[in-house]
Design a protein around this nucleic acid. Structure first.
Lengths: 212, 212
DNA sequence: TTATGTATACATGTATACAATCACGGAGGA
DNA sequence: TCCTCCGTGATTGTATACATGTATACATAA
């Protein structure tokens, strides 16, 4: 297995909350830290910028993405639209092979739920669900959106993440897929996303209204 | 006005068909051509890769995006989903200011319809339509998708683009917006996109089944 | 006080040189 | 004939050095 790329390492640190939103990413500092020149750092930052994890402007040091309230709302609107469509395409196409893969992903994600890389488990679970839709680009777009949502969440208290409800939602979603019940699955997904969005918005308000 | 960036120049050439799908983009060649070193070329290629206009792999020379049949279908599925949603959000929010901007964009795009940069006029028109939705990220995603669809179109005969129908569809879409008729606007959009997709798929089949 | 100009420090953008990797073709052997 | 195994040329990846642009602080003038 090749060593993880610089971009991958930085992404993990951003998603885990080690580099909270707004953190400046100086090319020289990163070059020093990774023991390489600034060129590969620039490449890594370009990759992160492509997926939207950082904001980069010419002649300005890049920073970890910090979304406004409106941007969070739009991101969740998009997730609901894209994930709802994927669900509608996937469920009628699901085979036993798909379902067993979903079950496996559910277990895996449950084990990692309370660890620092819970986001990766979450991604794997949803990828398994949406695989049957056969729309890989759409899945990639959804994963990008989910990532930028995770950044904002990771910035706040890990304990406020409502892990229990998150787990039961995944379990119920899996059951609905096994039953082939699109309506129920869609309802669960919608409530899942709306809940996460509202939770995040409340956290954001709490932090901004009482800055210190 | 600043000189256009290297990435912008390359993008225009790709969209105009000067660099058809599959064309290799050698860093050394481009550096020679633009009279700069390979570093800014790498940056430009990274930007193009971010929007999906080129496919780049490590240690491999980048090439202009060449979509398969399935990828074209998925791209148009996504456009229909995202643009339909934008339309549904935009039309109820449209003010006189929005409508006049749409009218202006319609005229502008009509003038450029038969020129090489028709794609830019098309983008401006749809941006004007969707502006009232207030979902800038979603608009950006749609623009990226439209661009990668344009690449494939530009690769084939310009005369087969059905410019007349394209223009009348824009006119009818504008009328539906002025009337505030979402149902009709959605129907026009769906037919517009399905027509473009089928047209493109036919062209692709024609070229692949009779390669020479 | 407010605004403007300027100097300095720092971060990014770019050019050049070198190292690592890959594609291709030809030699050798089963 | 076909497959495998190198070598060679070409292409990309990286390090170093320099050029350019931006921000901050301070001095100066209205």
């Amino acid at each position: 297995m090749p060593p993880p790329s610089i971009a991958q390492i930085l992404q993990d640190e951003i998603l885990s909350g080690a580099l909270p939103p707004g953190t400046p990413l100086s090319q020289a500092d990163l070059a020093m830290r990774f023991g390489v020149s600034r060129i590969p750092i620039r490449d890594a930052l370009a990759k992160l910028s492509a997926t939207g994890l950082i904001t980069a402007s010419p002649n300005r040091t890049a920073t970890v993405l910090k979304m406004t309230r409106d941007e969070v709302i739009e991101a969740y609107n998009l997730r609901l639209l894209l994930e709802g469509d994927l669900l509608a395409r996937a469920i009628p196409q699901m085979t036993d092979s798909h379902l067993s893969a979903i079950g496996y992903a559910l277990e895996r994600s449950s084990l990692e739920a309370r660890q620092s890389n819970w986001a990766e488990g979450d991604r794997m679970f949803h990828d398994a669900i949406y695989a049957a839709a056969g729309q890989p680009r759409q899945q990639a777009m959804v994963n990008d959106l989910r990532r930028i949502c995770c950044i904002q969440i990771a910035g706040y208290n890990q304990l406020t993440r409502n892990t229990d409800r998150w787990l039961t939602d995944h379990q119920r979603l899996t059951n609905a897929c096994r039953a082939g019940n699109l309506r129920r699955a869609t309802r669960i997904l919608r409530r899942h996303l709306n809940g996460a969005r509202n939770h995040l918005l409340r956290e954001m308000d709490r932090k901004t209204t009482r800055p210190a």
